[in-house]
Design a protein around this nucleic acid. Sequence first.
DNA 1: TTAAAATGTTAGATGAATCTAATAAAATAA
DNA 2: TTATTTTATTAGATTCATCTAACATTTTAA
Lengths: 215, 215
Amino acid sequence: MGSLTEENYIKSIYSLSGETGEVSFTDLARKLEVKLPTVNSMVKKLAVKKMIVYAPYKGVKLTEKGKKEALSIIRKHRLAELFLVKVMGLGWEEVHDIAEQLEHVNSARFYDRMDELLNFPKADPHGEPIPDTDGKLPAKKRIALSEVAEGKTVKIIAVSVDEKPFLDLLNIKRIHIGDTITIQKREPFDGSLAILKSGHEIILSQQVTERLFVE
Amino acid sequence: MGSLTEENYIKSIYSLSGETGEVSFTDLARKLEVKLPTVNSMVKKLAVKKMIVYAPYKGVKLTEKGKKEALSIIRKHRLAELFLVKVMGLGWEEVHDIAEQLEHVNSARFYDRMDELLNFPKADPHGEPIPDTDGKLPAKKRIALSEVAEGKTVKIIAVSVDEKPFLDLLNIKRIHIGDTITIQKREPFDGSLAILKSGHEIILSQQVTERLFVE
DNA sequence: TTAAAATGTTAGATGAATCTAATAAAATAA
DNA sequence: TTATTTTATTAGATTCATCTAACATTTTAA
Ligand SMILES: [Mn+2]
Ligand SMILES: [Mn+2]
Ligand SMILES: [Mn+2]
Ligand SMILES: [Mn+2]
């Protein structure tokens, strides 16, 4: 484990990694809300610690060690979020900010007890999978609601954003993980969807449906 | 709220304050495990922030603002300890180190929910009182077991040390908060006590009985 | 295929929190 | 009361994480 700052860099690099695993300095700087030279010097430090591979003017990429570290932090974050919802009775829209702090708590006992109390859960309150202790992530295929054809009935299994404004909107629209919905109509002009949930019609903009995942 | 470092200074100054409220730089440096000049510069900074009053070569003393800040951190620490024991099922000997981290979590919701779930508790797992939201501390008179006369029957209400080695020893001796015990004999040579707890004799050194409080 | 734009790097500075070495003041002991 | 010891202060350096300004490289577009 490195410093809080290092942990946040590792986590951000992980979450920005796409197919190739390469992450640009510009994207990292935006995500972490720091300037480019800051990222540059931190990246060099993480390279010395063998958390990432780095060569000048190439992007940056996590090593196996770095990936494991990232998944360990993500595990703590997601366990904490679920614990805050299930045990402490907080809403799914208010747990992310607390989990951002709890994910840096250094105590295996604390997280092992959470895991036990939650009965070794597989997903967080936003439907995101919880990595196991070895850093294994149960990959589940999921489709964005924005890609689903009219007439289909699907179950909401995850949201890809866990920040308050988005989840506040879903609360107002009464959209939750586990809901079964039917796509009634897709508006060609703006891509918004009219969906049916237990008899009620709900209108969702494309910005929303792109961030809702179903199976 | 200041930085994590500032919070730890405030908390240490509070816990070192005796009658007068004055704390020496030397004591602070020892408690925080830093050198004297480090304390000196930090103290100046806290004085600017009106958390303490400071004049060169005088000790340092918390202002009302500083005292409130200290009690708010202590409240979080003790609520966390009790939560870890009562809700998460950890032992009283392993919660202090985790609470040292949790006390810096910035979230009123997190601590309000703890408080509710624990039913607005008055004391932590070590018998220490939990300050309320306004920073009021229910002062209870308590006597060190080392001061109690032979023959008396008393109830253990608190321990003044919550570090693992001490609590591990109490666990081995089967001494817990709430236990009723009778002082059988005080050994004049070393001040150790033979006590009786539900029929069993337990020998406790003076170093232990000084840190056990009864009523 | 060169000019412009985007992206990444280097140099040098800053603030926070720490240190060591030297010095000053206050408290204690001879 | 003076000398010694303890306690506190100052000066200057270090490490971490950050910044701005200037420069270099790579990518994209004219
Ligand atoms: Mn989250
Ligand atoms: Mn989440
Ligand atoms: Mn404690
Ligand atoms: Mn305690």
